[in-house]
């Protein structure tokens, strides 16, 4: 039930309107498709970087606070998993609207009038919110295993704090960084709802382009070719990271049972 539609899509991408690889040639030569692909990749990098930047300290704090605070922080991270994507996206529409709360807060901080709704900034803020848990959880699970005596040891041996962090702590958490980064990158490539509702049509992502091709002009050939291109990029990213970490470990799942 999953294979048949995927196979059909792949088939359509090389047979509609005529047999051959014309659709793929179009993807790679057509200015619009290329622009959209680059924009999607850029967005992916920005969202991933933003997530990493904010999730890293958050995950670290999770490892050093008392259990009760940690439970609260964990619940907060898991909250987006429970709440409906539509409800959240709608909430961002409200929050980021012109004259909305976020605008007011920024103005109060003296940052002036930033246009958030219908802009890439708005989409980034909303997408990062959806993606943050996928970054925090793997980071937390690798930080939890780091021996807490190591950094004080480095400091007592005369390392400056920055050096102790870069040479001792960061390398030990790299598996978590790799896992979180890939998860966020792959997932953010295919985002449809958030950019469709918060972004401007002039700055559409690849998922929107696919939707427009299929929904408006029923061009399954072009849509299929774009889809498969997207899929190849996503799988390549996944393959890259599978060489470093096990996907199960990335999600913080334990494989204890396997060792019985």
């Amino acid at each position: 039930m999953f294979v048949v539609p995927m196979a059909r899509l792949a088939w359509l991408s090389v047979t509609t309107p005529e047999t051959g690889l014309a659709n793929y040639r179009d993807v790679l030569t057509d200015g619009v498709s290329l622009t959209v692909i680059w924009r999607t990749l850029r967005m992916m990098l920005v969202v991933t970087a933003v997530c990493l930047l904010f999730a890293y300290p958050y995950a670290y704090v999770m490892t050093v606070v008392p259990p009760r605070t940690r439970a609260v922080l964990t619940t907060i991270v898991l909250l987006p998993f429970w709440t409906s994507l539509m409800a959240r996206t709608f909430a961002w529409v409200v929050l980021l609207q012109k004259g909305g709360p976020v605008n007011d807060a920024l103005a109060a901080l003296g940052l002036g009038d930033v246009r958030l709704a219908g802009s890439a900034t708005g989409v980034t803020i909303a997408m990062a919110q959806v993606m943050l848990p996928f970054m925090v959880l793997p980071l937390y699970s690798s930080m939890r295993d780091v021996d807490r005596a190591l950094v004080p040891a480095a400091l007592s041996l005369g390392a400056r704090p920055a050096v102790a962090f870069l040479r001792v702590y960061l390398p030990l958490t790299l598996p978590g960084v790799a896992a979180g980064t890939t998860l966020v990158a792959v997932l953010s490539l295919g985002f449809y709802v958030t950019p469709a509702l918060l972004g401007s049509p002039k700055e559409s992502m690849i998922a929107q382009l696919i939707a427009v091709k299929v929904q408006d002009v029923l061009d399954f050939g072009a849509g299929g070719a774009l889809s498969l291109t997207l899929l190849v990029v996503a799988l390549a990213l996944l393959g890259l990271v599978a060489r470093f970490v096990r996907p199960g470990a990335a999600l913080g799942m334990s494989d204890e049972g396997d060792r019985r």
Binding site: P5, M6, L9, V186, L189, G190, Y192, S227, A234, L238
Partner: peptide, 11 residues
């Protein structure tokens, strides 16, 4: 793993 939009148009 597969982006939902792809599943959507395939379906």
């Amino acid at each position: 793993v597969v982006p939902t939009i792809i599943v959507a148009i395939a379906v």
